[in-house]
Design a binder for these strands. Structure first.
Length: 437
RNA sequence: GUGGAUGUAGCUCAGGUGGUUAGAGCGCCAGUCUGUGGAACUGGAUGUCGAGGGUUCAAGUCCCUUCAUCCACCCCA
């Protein structure tokens, strides 16, 4: 007797968005969209699938080897489900490079997939807002991107002390390693990796790792000093000019003048996983103790468009994922209790009145801009119909029986206000607009 | 991939040392109430106790295997 039903569970690490979940998502995206569009950014979109090669070239090794959803199509072309947007947008820019007027200010909202173990704040499928400025070659691009982040946080009403943008610079980081610590060029990447993991591994492991990479004990101690030094103090350690130091110091100068000094800080430990970053890198952190994680981040990449076409287009941008950010909003109680839904009313029915009368009324209201549904079940008990409206969160109920129909009017119940009015059908749509606000 | 925790009704969870027909709250359905909702009262339905195997006269409970979920690690958006 028992049937073998298909499992109702969604695929691991993905989410089903039920109507109530879409309320949050739409609210969240519209806030971000407001903030980004207020800086004149234009929306674009790209395909879910990309050629494998696009990621093999410039993303981090871990991402490529273990986290890509990859497969072959029917013509044996190797494809991946996009794990991020930056390579796609770089490809799109490259394709129309000659027709474009720079700088481009672009953003998109899209979903991405990575094969990894789901956990808090990290799923296999997530939605991300990507904001990028292409062809902005100087430090004003950095400031604009940081301002947008600030605007987004303000749009959600986040207190300024609830988050921090931690900033570093890849060139500066490399210069510190090569000029101050005298790390050999071929070891720079591995030292960066060790530094990146500094907080997560034991001190002994860290020391011996750096030792293997040719850093004597005195150099390791110097590195410790660098970690506890201010930007200016580190810059003072240089014996030769450093482009990265120059960029960082003028960026922070600009940040102060723009009034963003309170939410931005220099942090030598910010490196970021993607290999394609070439200049400024930053990460936004939640400052609350229960959610001390990176919310999102980004940076400057000079060579991505170059993958597709000979070009000298620098880009700077960031990606803002919905999963970690929702955690942030919930931690700081920034999600409103009642997310806005479109106002709608339920038209109840009586047995004695022909269905087409209700259908006509529904049509008339719809044309008048009032979203409405007819109670289509054959349960004519008014109490049931009103309870249904209540449960389904309709804003109001229209009652039209024989008597009302003859007089050309209806009874309208405003469910939240518990009020009731008799209104003429002719001007019903206008009246309802007023009553529903 | 590694470690930890958890799987009992639609949901949240109870079910000492194995022992009749497996429970509660919420929700759901119906009625009180055939033109007026959130309340109340009365009644009702619902479980392969995650799956498979084993021990036992007897397993939701003990053992083994497996699957799933959550959390942490790894790594990162």
């Amino acid at each position: 007797m028992s049937q073998n039903f298909l499992p109702v569970r969604n695929y691991k690490g993905t989410r089903d968005f039920y109507p109530e979940d879409m309320l949050f998502r739409n609210w969240y995206f519209s806030k971000v969209r407001n903030a980004v569009e207020s800086f004149g950014y234009e929306e674009y979109h790209g395909p879910l699938l990309e050629s494998f090669d696009v990621y093999a070239a410039k993303s981090g090794e871990e991402v490529v080897n273990e986290q890509l959803y990859s497969f072959e199509d029917k013509k044996n072309r190797r494809l991946v489900i996009r794990p991020e947007m930056t390579p796609t947008v770089a490809r799109m820019v490259a394709a129309k490079l000659e027709q474009m007027t720079f700088p481009l200010r672009w953003f998109s909202i899209a979903n991405f997939m990575r094969y990894e173990q789901p956990q808090k704040g990290r799923l296999r499928e997530h939605w991300q807002v990507n904001v990028d400025a292409f062809g902005s070659n100087n430090i004003h691009g950095e400031l604009e991107i940081l301002s947008i982040i600030n605007a987004i946080m303000m749009e959600f009403g986040a207190p300024r002390i609830s988050f921090k943008i931690k900033i570093n610079n890849r060139k500066f980081f490399n210069d510190v390693l090569t000029h101050i610590l005298k790390v050999k060029d071929e070891n720079v990447r591995m030292v960066a990796k060790a530094v990146d993991r500094r907080a997560k591994i034991s001190r002994e492991a860290y020391d011996s790792w750096l030792g293997e990479l040719g850093l004597a004990q005195e150099k390791v101690e110097l590195l410790d000093r660098i970690f506890s030094s201010s930007l200016d103090e580190i810059i003072a350690m240089f014996d030769a000019p450093s482009e990265g130091a120059e960029e960082l110091s003028s960026l922070f100068d600009l940040i102060k003048k723009a009034g963003l000094g309170d939410i931005c800080e220099f942090d030598f430990a910010i490196i970021r996983g993607f290999d394609y970053y070439t200049g400024t890198v930053f990460e936004v952190y939640d400052t609350s103790p229960e959610n001390r994680r990176s919310l999102f981040g980004g940076g400057r990449y000079d060579n991505l468009v170059n993958l597709f076409k000979k070009a000298n287009v620098s880009g700077i941008g960031f990606g803002l994922g919905d999963v970690t950010f929702q955690n942030f909003l919930e931690t700081h109680e920034l999600v409103p209790e009642n997310l806005i839904t479109k106002k709608r009313v339920l038209i109840t029915r009586f047995k004695e009145v022909a269905y087409e009368e209700y259908f006509k009324l529904s049509d008339k209201l719809r044309q008048g801009g009032i979203a409405n549904s007819i109670y289509i079940e054959d349960n004519f008990k008014l109490g049931k119909q009103i309870a249904f409206a209540e449960k389904k969160a309709f804003d109001g109920v229209i009652v039209m029986g024989e008597d009302e129909l003859k007089k050309g009017e209806v009874t309208f119940k405003h469910l939240a206000r518990k009020s009731q009015d008799i209104l003429p059908i002719d001007t019903l749509a206008e009246k309802l607009k007023e009553l529903l606000g």
